[in-house]
Amino acid sequence: MSVLVFAENWEGRFKKSTYEAVSYAAEIARQLNTSCTAVVIGAVSEEDKKGLGKYGATKVLSVANDKLKNLEAGVYTHILGDAAKSVGATHVVISFTYTGKAIAPRLSVRLKAGLVSGAIALPTSLSPFTVRKKCYSGKGLTDVVISSEIKMVAITPNSYKVNTGGADAAVEVFSPAIPDGEFKVVSKEVKKTSGKIALTEAELVVSAGRGMKGPENWGMIEQLAEALGAATACSKPVADMGWRPHHEHVGQTGITIGPNLYIAIGISGAIQHLAGVSSSKVIVVINSDKEAPFFKAADYGIVGDAFSVVPQLVEAVKKLKAAHN
């Protein structure tokens, strides 16, 4: 029995979601009284690899190879499948990120392991192995029981707190043979979203909708985001009209996020919008219409004109930040 976790990196750096996944896997290992091994694919510094021990990994299998720079789900599955066999993994944890979404279902077939994707908490029971996830786009919760011998969980980013305090992990080189024929997807271009905070990883998000009247009014939204250190998002019509880029669109048909704080400005709160943001821990709604449905899903609300409330909010946040610096 042992627990394996895929410690995903982006351009050589681990992300918060990686530390969450390692912490989650280590906690399952602790409950099962076994060890937690992390797999790292690609070039990551020795320091960072050892550092996964802090989050509870006891061993790190490090796979480095020039050809592994871009995500090739088939090849990553091969590596993780071999790693799972080599440590006798009974439980496999992966982040429910785009990378995780590409790999987890393949790996689950390869290991014939039942997969709960989008888990939001630790297993509610280890036997039978039961994990809670959202369903109906956040409108419901369901407990999923895995009956296969190997169990897999893909954990939603920002839903599990990182543990710290462990000692350095032992790093071992792991080099499964991968035939050239397994590389089937050719990466032609990577288009990075510009320097700002990535929406899917942001802890704080400032979002605005059609109530802003036009793209020329987004200055105050960006100022608020900057004062908070938040990412910016928007409603669907705003992206459809070209006021904001499509990658900011959250909701049923856009990105699903679960930040610690979601501030919705001039957004009515249609059910399709809520589907993408209802996992936010705290929701603030600023809307001039006191009947706006979003208030029903909010923790804090201001009925008021965004054009006067938001600039005041920017000043108040700046004051708070200044007082705490």
């Binding site: 014939k112 392991a113 039942g114 997969l115 709960v116 039961t130 959202k134 369903c135 956040g138 409108k139 419901g140 919760l141 369901t142 407990d143 999923v144 029981v145 895995i146 009956s147 296969s148 209802s278 709604v285 208030f295 029903k296 899903a297 909010a298 923790d299 804090y300 609300g301 201001i302 009925v303 008021g304 004109d305 006067s308 409330v309 005041q312 909010l313 108040a316």
Partner: peptide, 24 residues
């Protein structure tokens, strides 16, 4: 190899705390 055994609605939100627009 998996089965959804139980469903429930997410816990109801506490009532929204309203703040005056004059006291941001």
């Amino acid at each position: 190899i998996t089965a959804s055994t139980a469903y429930e609605l997410p816990p109801a939100k506490q009532a929204c705390k309203m703040i005056s627009p004059d006291n941001v």
